[in-house]
């Protein structure tokens, strides 16, 4: 089984040009890393339905720009809006990706506020519940433990950028990326399920 898979892969590689070979190598790397690191289910679902899409390289680059513009801190909304305006009549896939990215980037500062608020609440609660024990033992390590919880907002804000840059990378390789909650919401908003034609022929 293992040898068969390998020889099939070799044949596939021999039949391809260099660019396609690079694509296949990247794809294999993504699959291998998702198997080993266990990336989340959104990445795996993105890889499963890639065969249905026929995406040109220009569309990939546009979608990756729309997602990757999140690093511009507030101006990224303008970049993804420009992508939506310029690609509106051309490609429905890029249109969807740009709308998704715009929705994600409009909610950036709401996400920041929520992340900081939640982590401060957690900090205060942990402080209240562990204060007595800390006073009893009088250990300086307690403050290290306590202030390590200050890293939670930093990690949450980092997660915001990591998700968007992961999306940019996946779009660059032609995968149908969706943000965790926003992606499903946008696609359901654009094509609501109850208004689909119900034909019982």
């Amino acid at each position: 089984m293992f040898i068969q898979e390998n020889s099939w892969g070799l044949l596939r590689k021999q039949a391809c040009s260099d660019v396609q070979l690079f694509d296949i190598m990247v794809e294999e790397w993504v699959i291998a890393s998702s198997k080993s690191i266990r990336l989340n289910k959104y990445v795996r679902s993105a890889m499963e339905n890639e065969n249905e899409l026929q995406i040109t390289s220009e569309e990939r680059i546009m979608a990756a720009l729309a997602h990757g513009s999140v690093i511009l801190y507030g101006f990224g909304l303008l970049a993804s809006l420009a992508v939506w305006i310029s690609q509106r009549g051309k490609s429905s896939w890029v249109r969807y990706q740009a709308l998704q990215a715009m929705t994600y980037q409009v909610l950036q500062f709401a996400y920041y506020t929520a992340a900081i608020f939640i982590s401060q609440c957690a900090f205060i609660l942990i402080f209240i519940f562990t204060m007595e024990k800390a006073v009893e033992t009088d250990s300086p390590q307690y403050f290290g433990f306590l202030f390590s919880f200050m890293l939670i907002p930093v990690l949450l804000i980092g997660l915001y950028y990591v998700v968007a840059i992961l999306g940019a990378g996946l779009c660059l390789f032609g995968k149908d990326f969706r943000y965790p909650i926003i992606g499903r919401w946008v696609s359901r908003y654009l094509e609501p399920r109850e208004e689909l034609p119900e034909e019982d022929e």
Binding site: G74, F75, L77, L78, L81, A82, W84, I85, L99, M102, T103, Q105, V106, L107, Q108, F109, A110, V186, Y189, L190
Partner: peptide
């Protein structure tokens, strides 16, 4: 959806550029 984004862009600094564009 885009009209909603242009209304919601008041949460973003310099968000008024979005409805202009």
């Amino acid at each position: 959806l885009v009209a909603g984004i242009s209304h919601a862009s008041l949460m973003v600094p310099l968000g008024f550029l979005v409805p202009i564009i």
